[in-house]
Every structure is written in structure tokens, then in C-alpha cells.
Write a protein that binds this DNA or RNA. Structure first.
Length: 488
RNA sequence: GGUCGGUUGGCCGAGUGGCUAGGCAUCGGUCUGCAAAACCGGGUACGGCGGUUCGAAUCCGCCACCGACCUCCA
């Protein structure tokens, strides 16, 4: 009944039958966040996409080792090899230790992920905890002749690599084109070629995050961390490497080159990339400054939001689009997702209370088959969700006695809904978000009544309301045309 | 400029040669003291122009527009 899972492989640009290298084990590596700021809506997409994959693989009885890293060093600003380390920069701005920044935003990320009901990965390695492995790898790439040292830094020699291997195999990029398009900058760089990338960088005297190495004190390049950590926990070759499409080049291309230069084999059997979330048709991103953090979404405190949206609404919003399509954010789209999800939940409540009938008028098997087909077709969650909505109509019709199911089939349908809606799509009913919204609205309502009383000069009532609310821990501030409130 | 992808009804978003998802909004109805909610139902969209075909949103060509990557980004 479960059928065969087909997944799109960025490497071959085709949907391919999934079959693990070492059945029933599956090695899954996903690029996690660089922890120098709060997670935004964009971060939720790969997390949820690969959470869906993780959950489905588990359901299919695979033994999945899921590794998702935390990048806490080596990720530079601006130019990949000249900018300041992102974490260090944030630490400097906030006058904190880099590791305090790392801890703060790692915690924040974990909280957000928990709220989104994203299962924690089996291993969550940090780059700074794997310096030795990275140094070892750089040493071996050097020994194999695919890197060179300059002034305390080590760079990957793309030209040398290209003599024997295909640099650009993943991204489809052609080195000659890159050469043709690379003007200026040559000469002023210690790299031999502009497209060479850093494996190890010498730390200048102001650089805080530094480790000893055979080439002097320095820190690892961004790409090498993922190669070192994935190979450490998943072996030289593993099943699936995932991440955002924006990491395809250069990050993932470089990972392949590093692994091949190291042991002659590509690291991952298949690559999966989620598409971007857009806002007004443009990519949502830190550098563009048009992002909305998850915290802002959950609290509603953002100029583009009319209200708070629960984590489950965000999750559902993301799952309503296929992971390889761009998904356009808007307040309106979020409201639509919220209502749709609520309808699905309330339909499930109806389902649970249905009584068996003496005959069945609905093909539960067919329904199950269609649900699996959707997932097997490269994790087509929107089609799965559409299937579930077919159920919504059915449940109401059954409630009115127009349709019916025998006991065994009814139970099966309940189980299927439980499986697809909750276990695999990872949605869950919580009232937290809704209650928060209700709470805020109630306070607003009370203060509206107070404002009316004030307008009518009924100061006894208006003061009574303010005093009582103050006692309860609210701070009320009257403004020119209304009020503001906060809760201590 | 190079590489890749996209353009679907008011909005979000599937699909991919004929069976023309789904959600939200809207409109009509049931229900209801009124309203809301809930439920039922209606509305047949695929950037433009050509071509292939009995038949194209779906294949091919050209054009237009948008975006991603090429520099950090999930």
C-alpha cells in the first residue's frame, strides 16, 4: 500500500526511486542555521521540509540517522574569504563573547523549532566542536595536491581539481563561463584564482575565534565544516544531503569538490533543495532586510502582520506549497492557511465522533492509496492536504447519514487521518496561539469599554477598570487617541 | 552578461496532452429572533503570438515579464 518513494535529485534533475545505500539505514544531512540572529520564516522552510522527509522515512521503517549542523564559526560576511565572521561581528556589536551569541541564538532556534513541531535531529554537531576533524581533512586535501597554502591560509585549487573532476556537477556551472565573467580583483588576492575557496583562514590579530593548526592560528572555511561533520557521522558516502536552494552554489558544490579531492567519492547519493520563501515576489533574506522572524510571526508584532499566527499555521502554510516551488508570503495567505487548518482540525473532531454504519459508501483503501501516492511523488504535501480536505466533506456527509462506513473501515479512516495529518505532516492541535490571540482581544475589549466610559465622562468606571487591570499586572498608558497596554 | 527556474481564476497554490486539485475570499442557499459560526452549492483560470495534434494550461518555437544563483543568506 505504501508504494515506492520517488525523490527529486538536484544532481540528476530527475525524480528517482529512493533506495538507501545500506538498507534499512538512511543517512540524512541537512545544512542548519548560522546562529548569529533570530530564525526567520525562511529558516522554517528547510526545517519543515526535511522534517516531513524525516517523519516519512521513519514511517516507512527506515533507520534514519539525521544530522543537522549548527554553523557557529567560519561563516563570513560579504566576500566569502575577506569579510568578517558573522558570529564574531554580532558579538562585537553586542559586546558579548562569540559563544554567548552562539548559545543565545541556538537556544532561540531550538525553541522556534519545537514550536513548529519540528523533530530534533539525531545529531546536531557544531562546527566549532569539529575543528580537529576539519584540520585533518584540509591536511589530506593538501596532501592529495588539491589545495595550496599561502601566508597561513589554505585554499582549494579549483583548476587542479578540474583537470580530473567536474567542478560544477551540481550547480551546472561551467568553469570557463565563470572565468569569462570574472573580471578585476585578480592580483590583489592571495588566492591563485578568484573561484578558489578557503579551506582554512589565517586569523588576523583582531580575530577572536581562532585555533592552532599546522598553518598557524586560524579558523576553518565555511564549506569544510559540513564536509567534516557529515563524513564523521554518516561516513564518506551517505544517502541524502539537503538544504536551501541558495546553498547550492557555492556551498554544496564546494562540499562535493572537497569530498572528492579527499577520498575520490561524492559525499551524497542525492541532493535535495527546498525553494525560497518570497515576499512580494522577492526572496526573503537577511541581506535584503525583508525578513520576518518566527518570533514576530508568533507574536504578531510586525508591520506586515494584522495579528499573531500560531506556529501550526506557519507549518501548514509552508506545507501547502510543494517544497521545490517558491512560496509567496503575505498576511492574507497566512490568514487563509489559518482558516483552512482550523477546518481540517474541526473535521477531524467530527470524524472521531462518528458512529459506524452498517454499510460503507466510501473507499477508504482508495483514499489511503492517494495519500501515499502524493507523498511518494517527491513529498507532494499540497496534494496530500487536498486529499485530506476531501475527507472533510465526507465526514460531514457521514454525520448527516448520507454516507457511512462500517466499523473497521471507520477506525481505519481515523487512523489514517491521525497518521497523515499529525504524524507525517507533523501538525498538532494547540490552543496556545489562539488563546493568546483571544487573551489579547479580551484585554482590548475591556479597554475599549473603558475608553467609552471615559468619553462619557464616567470616570468612576474607567478608573475602576484601570485600577483592577493594574492590580493584575497590566500597565495602561493613555495616548492621544486611545491606549496602549503591556503586561509585566 | 552567464546559468537555472517561473508566469494558473480576487489571493495562495497543485497539476501536466482529453477525466479540467485544494484552501481562502466572494456570491447564492440551509440554519437562525438578528448576526456570527457551521454546512451545502455556484462561478471553468492557466503571460502573448504562432506551430504540432482529432484534442494543449500541459509538447515545440518565438516574444514579453518576473525571480533565483553567479558575493553572505534557509
Amino acid at each position: 500500500m505504501q508504494g515506492n518513494l520517488f525523490l527529486y535529485n538536484t544532481l540528476t534533475k530527475k525524480k528517482e526511486l529512493f533506495s538507501p545505500l545500506n538498507h534499512p539505514h538512511v543517512g540524512l544531512y541537512v545544512c542548519g542555521p548560522t546562529v548569529y540572529g533570530d530564525a526567520h520564516l525562511g529558516h522554517a522552510r528547510p526545517a519543515i521540509t526535511f522534517d516531513l522527509l524525516f517523519r516519512y522515512l521513519l514511517h516507512l521503517d527506515y533507520k534514519v540517522r539525521y544530522v543537522r549542523n549548527i554553523t557557529d564559526v567560519g561563516h563570513l560576511e560579504n566576500d566569502a574569504d575577506e569579510g568578517e565572521d558573522k558570529v564574531q561581528k554580532k558579538a562585537r556589536l553586542e559586546q558579548l563573547e562569540p559563544m554567548e551569541i552562539v548559545q543565545r541564538y541556538t537556544n532561540s532556534y531550538h525553541n522556534n523549532m519545537r514550536e513548529l513541531n519540528v523533530l530534533p535531529p539525531g545529531i546536531e554537531p557544531r562546527a566549532s566542536g569539529h575543528i580537529i576533524e576539519q584540520i585533518e581533512m584540509v591536511k589530506e586535501i593538501l596532501a592529495n595536491g588539491y589545495a595550496y597554502e599561502v601566508n597561513g591560509s589554505v585554499y582549494f585549487d579549483v583548476d587542479k581539481y578540474s583537470e580530473k573532476y567536474h567542478y560544477g556537477i551540481l550547480s551546472g556551472r561551467i568553469l570557463e563561463d565563470m572565468m569569462a565573467n570574472t573580471r578585476e580583483l585578480e592580483g590583489q588576492d592571495e588566492k591563485r584564482k578568484p573561484w578558489d575557496f578557503a579551506l582554512w583562514k589565517k586569523a588576523d590579530k583582531d580575530h577572536i575565534m581562532r585555533w592552532p593548526s599546522p598553518w598557524g592560528e586560524g579558523f576553518p572555511g565555511w564549506h569544510i565544516e559540513c564536509s567534516a561533520m557529515s563524513s564523521k557521522y554518516l561516513g564518506e558516502q551517505f544517502d541524502i544531503h539537503g538544504g536551501g536552494m541558495d546553498l547550492l552554489f557555492p556551498h554544496h558544490e564546494c562540499e562535493i569538490a572537497q569530498s572528492v579531492a579527499w577520498h575520490g567519492k561524492e559525499p551524497a547519493a542525492r541532493w535535495m533543495h527546498n525553494n525560497m520563501i518570497t515576499i512580494n515576489g522577492q526572496k526573503m533574506g537577511k541581506s535584503l532586510g525583508n525578513f520576518i522572524t518566527l518570533q514576530e510571526l508568533f507574536s504578531g508584532r510586525h508591520i506586515l502582520l494584522s495579528k499573531a499566527f500560531s506556529p501550526m499555521t506557519i507549518r501548514f502554510f509552508i506545507l501547502q506549497a510543494h517544497y521545490r516551488s517558491t512560496l509567496d508570503f503575505s498576511n492574507e495567505a497566512l490568514q487563509a492557511a489559518e482558516k483552512g487548518l482550523e477546518r481540517l482540525f474541526s473535521a477531524f473532531r467530527v470524524l472521531q465522533q462518528l458512529k459506524p454504519s452498517d454499510k460503507s459508501t466510501f473507499a477508504v483503501e482508495e483514499f489511503e492509496k492517494k495519500c501515499y501516492e502524493a507523498l511518494n511523488d517527491d513529498l507532494n504535501s499540497p496534494v496530500l492536504i487536498a486529499q485530506l480536505f476531501e475527507g472533510v466533506k465526507l465526514f460531514h456527509s457521514m454525520k448527516e447519514g448520507k454516507d457511512g462506513l462500517k466499523e473497521a473501515e471507520l477506525q481505519k479512516l481515523v487512523n489514517l487521518f491521525q497518521l497523515f495529518l499529525f504524524d507525517i505532516l507533523g501538525l498538532k492541535e494547540t490552543n496556545e496561539g489562539a488563546e493568546n490571540g483571544v487573551f489579547n482581544s479580551l484585554v482590548d475589549l475591556i479597554l475599549d469599554i473603558r475608553l467609552q466610559a471615559k468619553t462619557k465622562k464616567d470616570f468612576q468606571l474607567s478608573d475602576h477598570i484601570r485600577d483592577q487591570l493594574t492590580k493584575l499586572g497590566f500597565e495602561i498608558k493613555d495616548t492621544k487617541d486611545g491606549y496602549e497596554w503591556t503586561r509585566k
